[in-house]
Design a protein around this nucleic acid. Structure first.
Lengths: 340, 340
DNA sequence: AGTTGAGATTTAATCGTTTAAACAGTAAAT
DNA sequence: ATTTACTGTTTAAACGATTAAATCTCAACT
């Protein structure tokens, strides 16, 4: 059969040792003082035989795989897919390849993925960590494996991370609703201990407090049952004693589920309830009322994460870097007080 | 520093040769007649030292990397992201890892990715091939590298592939519009030579022909400039002499661009123009009028592709497999004749 | 005592590269 | 004539694992 061409094959074909071939094909002719003519012959033969170096062997020898492990919650969520895309592109610039996996916000799956990728000798990780992943992250630290967290991080662990200023963005969003004149502002968030979610909630509450705007109406749903639970929560907010007239969704998926339910209840945006979303989403383009949203700088998050990771890979002694990026806030009609 | 633990380290710690350690950790104690007590010691030590075998070394030795290379047009497109997700999940069942890249429908990028992945010794490829990629595919064949094409294939090249019946789906969609009573049915497709697109166009044309429904109104746009060009094309269809009253979009991205433009022109669906889309999309949920669409069996495509690939990897002598899957056709209000 | 055999373990080659070090050959310098 | 200094090339070890073959140790049997 058609076995793959190795250095040895070329060496045999030309009639020299593999060392010479290696030097030539790695452009180390100068240092290794390889004869000019033989170098040409080797180069020609390699091309002719369509030689492709075995990266596994190279990595084994060098201890560097030029591979980044990427662990996200779910690649089919556009938020993560866009980050993945950026990370892939950015990594390619430095000749790195990306292997990714979806954790589904599940700490065991996340650990499995980390193990698989460590066995594959990735040079480092970019991870959007799940709840209860503190131990995994501590272990990576202990093992001195470079990594950068994105989207979330653990305040108790000193790590590299690139996030967006969730508190600030949520504060701004809530403040905007207050200033626009809405009286009772509800929020729907995921029920979990992850910092990005906590910060969004904190921003919302702080904004209400600073404006002495009554007490907060926060409702939380689980990741697994979001689309069902959100319906009850919205009902409670709508029918509760402090009937809300504005609603802040903490993520794009919550927005989609929530808006669908509002549609099904024939509640009009912004007349019956004003809306602000965290993150954007293709789907928003087709909502009858243009939606106000927090626009996270996804591309910068991805690029910074890659840059910091590669820097850390090449300079393991460097101190951890923490980056918090500001979001844009895009105001559309969904959060404008209807004139009546 | 904290170098990684190797077989040798364990061997040294226990005071035996690496061979024993290897036998034990690969559960080959029986065949290799390893002492029961020492096996226990080795196992304990390995766990204690948190040994993770080096997959690169294993692969180098065995010639199998348990890695699949996945080449898609763009991972940030939900159509591909969903396939990627399925492929990742399915591959994991067989202990395979997926490395992916985006070709952006560009043959050079695709070739670059193939080269990178070959160097990384992937066991096989799953590829949604771009235009002008025939030579690449031929080369893979010549090199006896297992691969499965998805979404598209090349009729002139005998390969494994898993696609959906594009002709049938387009025929059904068009026939539905005819039977519903629309008089002039336009279609917007990408201008390229790829089989999936050609088949969709062929299905559309054949349905018109079989129903003796006048001549076709096909407009084609380029991949790179789709969002701009689609506007002119829609204008032509709307204002042309055979003013259309129904429109068939050949992909989800074309649907989104097209519908946005129709919205901006204040054309109502289905009153001014009926709509059928190929592929679904989250965004459709929020379009004011529920959209009729061809629902491709993405999960099956991904799973079959993985299964066929792994089969081919393990049995290279097997004949190529060609799979064409039927799509669902979901009829909603956008293609229902308004009663007036 | 010597042979046989089974059990337990090690040796060494191998996968495809890289690269320091050794070696060989020639020319210039002493 | 010998040393020195290049130039050009090969040797061999190493990366971390696997595994056939070799080796060693006993115990059992003749």
């Amino acid at each position: 059969m058609n076995k793959k061409v190795s250095l040895k094959d070329i060496a045999k074909a030309v009639g020299v040792s593999t060392a010479l071939v290696s030097y030539v094909l790695n452009n180390k002719e100068k240092e290794a003082r390889v004869g000019k003519e033989i170098a040409e012959v080797i180069r020609k033969k390699a091309a002719e035989m369509n030689y492709q170096p075995n990266q596994l062997a190279k990595s084994l020898k060098s201890g560097k795989s030029f591979t980044i492990g990427l662990i996200l919650a779910d690649i089919s969520n556009p938020f993560f897919a866009n980050i993945a895309r950026t990370i892939e592109d950015e990594a390619k610039k430095y000749n790195y390849t990306v292997i990714f996996g979806s954790s589904d916000e599940n700490a065991e799956k996340s650990q499995d993925l980390i193990d698989v990728l460590i066995k594959r000798q990735v040079d480092g990780f970019i991870i959007a960590p799940t709840e209860r992943a503190e131990a995994q992250i501590e272990n990576l630290k202990k093992a001195h494996i470079p990594f950068v967290l994105i989207d979330r991080y653990f305040p108790k662990i000193q790590t590299n991370y690139v996030i967006t200023d969730n508190f600030g963005a949520a504060y701004q969003a809530t403040q905007h609703l207050i200033e626009t004149g809405f009286g009772a502002i509800g929020m729907i968030a995921y029920k979990n201990g992850l910092i990005h979610m906590k910060e969004r909630v904190r921003g919302y509450k702080q904004a209400l407090k600073d404006a002495a705007h009554g007490k907060s109406s926060l409702k939380e749903v689980t990741y697994e049952m979001a689309s069902e639970e959100i319906q009850d929560k919205i009902d409670e907010l709508i029918n509760g004693k402090q009937k809300i007239d504005a609603l802040f969704f903490a993520t794009n998926t919550l927005s989609i589920h929530g808006l669908k339910y509002l549609n099904s209840k024939r509640l009009k945006v912004p007349d019956d309830v004003a809306i602000v979303c965290f993150d954007e989403c293709d789907a928003f383009d087709f909502f009858y009322c243009p939606l106000t949203y927090v626009k996270q700088p996804l591309i910068q998050v991805g690029q910074r994460a890659v840059n910091i990771l590669i820097d850390k890979i090449n300079h393991p002694e460097k101190a951890e870097e923490q980056v918090s990026l500001a979001s844009d806030f895009v105001i559309k009609r969904s959060s404008i007080k209807p004139t009546n």
